[in-house]
């Protein structure tokens, strides 16, 4: 029941935000047993940079198609 509520809330976010949350959550869970995981901020930056670049490329493609 709680899971369903969370799923519904999760689905209400923009797909690109969902992707960030999903990937960051996945990596956080992998490091969960470490008190201060080394390199996690770098991993998060890589995730966001990759997703942002994909998003910009898509925006650029859409722009090219519409023009």
């Amino acid at each position: 029941m709680l899971k369903d509520r969370l799923k519904a809330l999760f689905k209400s976010y923009d797909p690109v935000i969902r992707q960030v949350i999903y990937e960051v959550g996945e990596i956080e869970q992998q490091y969960i047993s470490m008190e201060k995981p080394r390199g996690i901020m770098k991993d998060i930056d890589e995730i966001i940079t990759r997703i942002a670049r994909e998003e910009l490329a898509q925006m650029s493609e859409k722009g090219d198609t519409s023009s």
Partner: peptide, 9 residues
């Protein structure tokens, strides 16, 4: 865009 994504997430 990165700032926007990180903050919104």
């Amino acid at each position: 865009l990165k700032y926007d994504l990180a903050q919104k997430a």
